[in-house]
Design a protein around this nucleic acid. Structure first.
Length: 258
DNA sequence: ATGTCAGGTCATACCTGA
């Protein structure tokens, strides 16, 4: 099965591209981020007409996450990251798809750093680490997929020296990502492609896509029960070049039947 | 410093977030 993550940067603007990509790529499960739409305005009918069941958690203007499942309805487990009931951002949803527990996340950007937004990012990361640990303790096949807003290493950014003060590349962010891997999670893209630049995001500014000045910030982390089934991984980077594209490209892993 | 999207509003010009 193919499991993908795609930050759509506004599902209203991206609906035609999303439909085209679903039809061409036919992933079994998809995590969407940055829906940027009120919960009751989500285009559920269009998604279902494309052959996907869906659960989502919208929010006016910002954030918003969804899980799509081809020919089935995801079975929702939770729609918030545990650990702070006062955090009302729609940034996490979790559900079962085809025997795999899928956690769909949109990690806070955190800029400017330092500052309250960066503090929020670090608190969110602490909660994610705690929840990820509890998921590992179940020994279930789990994928934590989404826009992490973290550049894991210097290989994952076009000009690392320019990003040292950015919340996406600060040591605190990279260290948290490294701690997730140390827990036992496998970075699907890097496991299949250990060397070289892989980008999932290109800024709208200054023709970054045309000049391939990108970042790798969309990740799919596989639990030890799932990692042995990994057979492929990639980025549908041509989608970033389509008309009215998101600044992110769909990113995916392929898994053998369990 | 530059500059581009998307969504929203005390809207047709600015604001925030990214």
């Amino acid at each position: 099965m193919k499991i993908a993550t795609y930050n759509v940067n506004g599902i209203t603007s991206r609906l035609p591209s999303l439909m085209r990509w679903l039809n061409e790529s036919k992933p079994e499960a998809v995590c969407l981020q940055e829906l940027k739409i009120p919960h009751d305005k989500f285009p559920e009918a269009a998604i279902r007409e494309a052959g996907y069941g869906v659960i989502w958690h919208g929010q006016k203007s910002f954030n918003g996450v969804a899980i799509l499942a081809r020919g089935a309805d995801p079975v929702e487990v939770r729609r918030a990251l545990p650990g702070d009931s006062d955090d009302l951002h729609s940034r996490y949803i979790e559900g079962n798809v085809g025997g795999v527990l899928v956690g769909c996340l949109y990690l806070p950007n955190g800029n400017p750093a330092p500052g309250p937004k960066f503090d929020y990012k670090l608190r969110w990361l602490e909660r994610l680490e705690k929840h990820a640990e509890s998921l590992l303790a179940t020994n279930a096949p789990v994928v934590l997929a989404g826009d992490y807003n973290i550049i894991p290493t210097e290989e994952d950014v076009f000009a690392p020296e320019r990003w040292v003060d950015d919340a996406l590349f600060r040591p605190e962010s990279r260290d948290a990502y490294a701690r997730l891997l140390k827990q036992g999670w496998t970075d699907g893209l890097r496991r299949m492609h250990p060397e070289g630049h892989i980008y999932t995001f290109w800024d709208y500014f200054r023709d970054h896509y045309g000049r391939d000045r990108g970042l790798r910030i969309d990740h799919l982390l596989l639990s030890p029960a799932l990692a042995p089934r990994l057979t492929g991984a990639g980025v549908d980077r041509e989608v970033r070049g389509w008309e009215k594209a998101s600044d992110h490209a769909p990113t995916w892993v392929e898994l053998a039947d369990g």
